[in-house]
Design a binder for these strands. Sequence first.
DNA 1: GTCTATACGCCGATAGAC
DNA 2: GTCTATCGGCGTATAGAC
Lengths: 207, 207
Amino acid sequence: MDQDIDNTQIAADIQADTPNEILLAALKLFAEKGYFNTSLGDIAKAADIKATSTIYQHFGDKQAIALKLYESIFDNLNVSIDEIRRKSQKSSEQLHGIVDLFFKLTDDAPYIMQFLLVLNTSEFLPKQNPILETPAFAKVVKIIQSGIRAGEIRNIDPILATTYFFGIINNTLRMVLNGELDKKAEVYQPQTWLAAWNLIAKKSTCF
Amino acid sequence: MDQDIDNTQIAADIQADTPNEILLAALKLFAEKGYFNTSLGDIAKAADIKATSTIYQHFGDKQAIALKLYESIFDNLNVSIDEIRRKSQKSSEQLHGIVDLFFKLTDDAPYIMQFLLVLNTSEFLPKQNPILETPAFAKVVKIIQSGIRAGEIRNIDPILATTYFFGIINNTLRMVLNGELDKKAEVYQPQTWLAAWNLIAKKSTCF
DNA sequence: GTCTATACGCCGATAGAC
DNA sequence: GTCTATCGGCGTATAGAC
């Protein structure tokens, strides 16, 4: 049991085995430098491995590493969203749960949020769904749709409402990730949540 | 005079000479496939040039092409923003002018907006300012600051207000660029402007 | 100013010993 | 299962003819 469980929480099965070391090193480097600026040599070094060939024992090729990361992150995101939806029926509370998750991840697992919000996965995973066509995203749209039916959310195009809502949330988190907003994400969470929610809520308090 | 002046409007000096052909080809390819998935061979072919060596007659290296694009786009953006600021004193009208420009560019020069909103320029232009530290961005913050002083805009952190405002605007444009929103940008402009403006305006009409 | 031809290096990927 | 050693190719960049 290592004590470096910082960024791994969401990164699937937490095992201190070599494949996971490789994944964590790759996630960090991809987030920091981008996929194409990261060589297998970089990953090997960061994972305390002497030979790049060792990587091929665990992954088919470089893309496969990125793919595994992509799948881990979205699988975990899916599970988290399902849990959030089970806890409450109200769209407002479900959305609040997702926002809470995103802000926590930004502070606790910034590499994962960098992967989600900043990297253009379609550039190195062309066969994979772009984030906006991912099951996780579809679930968010569903939440907003049912919020509209329930009268919680204004009657506008659900896709557009989702675009506005996460435009605010994600842009704020991007600004935190790149240091343009210099405090922890949690500092901005309350007012950012209010701004985003009031934007789509039916009975907005206006300020 | 060629008739393909589609995407060139903002791309600086419009001349049908070879350097400009190269820049236009590169812009298109970078926007479509990303910088690292685009080889000099790709650019040469798209620019109707037989030899990659010709490119080196006009640009120092591959990065220099991206740098020239970066400078052209931001120089033109700067000029446009200055013009907009000169036309009116009111922050609301200045912001509306910028929003109008962004939506028009998304419909008329999508490659430029892709470059601005989607590409991670810091991955291939590490020495250049990230977009958020660009003079153009600083001017937007200034507009919002003076809007706060004038009582037009609510008294919140100008950086945060800018983040919210362009979170909505830019995310909407990103959704148009990738086809997730399937109509022209101009279709979404009125309600998106209202959503973004009411979010930061002091006397919001609420809906 | 554009071409042909070619050099060079990096990095992804493989073979095979231990 | 990790290592050493090496290959092959792609893509950047250069030399030099026309």
